[in-house]
């Protein structure tokens, strides 16, 4: 069953066409990689999907619903969660609180849905703490602890440390844990392995493979091709805002257009590339 379908999505900034006519679909349970040189428009594509940017044209459907132009606050409720390329943990919050924030959209009792009076109701319930609210919070706390343990000894011992005290790699892990706390139907990962060394990357790969076997649908931007090869059912290659190739990882890496995009024309003659030079913005 198709979970996500993107049709001729475009977005430009001033003179720069960051995303042009991008179309693809994603089936439930699939893991798809998005690769391409820096500035190809991958992050902008994610921003369009997660509601942080509005597309100039094109449409996005998620779980059978047209969601084009929806705000992020609304999309998370539909089950669309993401991580950020440059790391956006809540610096002053503890690791555990960061993860709990991920579950915010799932709060039923603490956040009454009374339209205009909603904020007042939320305030009063937080002050009064009725049993239903307390039970909900306790269940979430337990769930968040479990989630931290998925990251082995990386996060659980630091549950009460403020996120700003974490290493770069641990912040990426917190972001993933936070997104998982939302129990997303689709998880968007923007370069989750950036800044991780080889063994850390391998650890992440195991975690993501785990998720995949559990049926988690994922869209993954990543420069480390090994990770993409191991994990992804299909790969979409972007350059200059457009999709220039799509298919299995093995097909794509022999595609002349892809080689040209990464290495320039002269290298295209040699046939295949294995490692994308890692450049961060």
């Amino acid at each position: 069953m198709t979970l996500l379908s993107v049709e001729t999505l475009s977005r430009s900034f001033g003179g720069i066409q960051a995303v042009r006519d991008v179309s693809f679909t994603l089936a439930e349970g699939e893991t798809v990689g998005v690769i391409g040189p820096n500035g190809a428009g991958k992050t902008t594509l994610f921003n369009l999907l997660s509601g942080h940017e509005r597309p100039d044209s094109g449409r996005v459907a998620f779980a059978g619903r047209e969601i084009t132009g929806w705000a992020p606050e609304r999309l998370i409720g539909q089950g669309l969660a993401r991580t950020f390329q440059h790391g956006r943990v809540f610096a002053n919050l503890s690791v555990l609180d960061n993860v709990l924030i991920g579950a915010s959209a799932r709060l039923r009792y603490a956040r009454p849905n009374w339209s205009l009076l909603g904020p007042l109701g939320e305030l009063l319930r937080a002050l009064l703490q009725p049993p239903a609210v307390r039970a909900e919070e306790a269940a979430l706390q337990a769930e968040a602890q479990t989630l931290l343990h998925r990251f082995g000894e990386r996060l659980a011992p630091r549950a009460n440390h403020p996120a700003h005290s974490l290493s770069y790699a641990n912040r990426r892990r917190v972001e993933i844990a936070r997104a998982l706390a939302a129990r997303p139907r689709l998880l968007l990962l923007d370069e989750p392995a950036a800044g991780m060394n080889e063994s850390e990357t391998l650890e992440l790969q195991h975690l993501l493979l785990d998720l995949k076997t559990q049926g988690q649908t994922m869209l993954l931007i990543e420069h480390k091709l090994d990770l993409v090869m191991q994990l992804c059912d299909r790969v979409i290659v972007m350059d200059d805002g457009a999709v220039i190739a799509a298919g299995t990882a093995a097909e794509v890496r022999r595609d002349p257009a892809v080689i040209r995009a990464y290495l320039g024309d002269s290298a295209a003659a040699k046939g295949e590339f294995t490692q994308v030079p890692e450049v961060t913005l």
């Binding site: 998370i76 809540f90 924030i101």
Partner: peptide, 16 residues
């Protein structure tokens, strides 16, 4: 505090 630390990330998790 999440809204204060990073409004954009907070939005992504349903906190307007």
């Amino acid at each position: 505090r999440a809204v204060r630390d990073d409004a954009i990330a907070a939005k992504s998790f349903g906190l307007s």
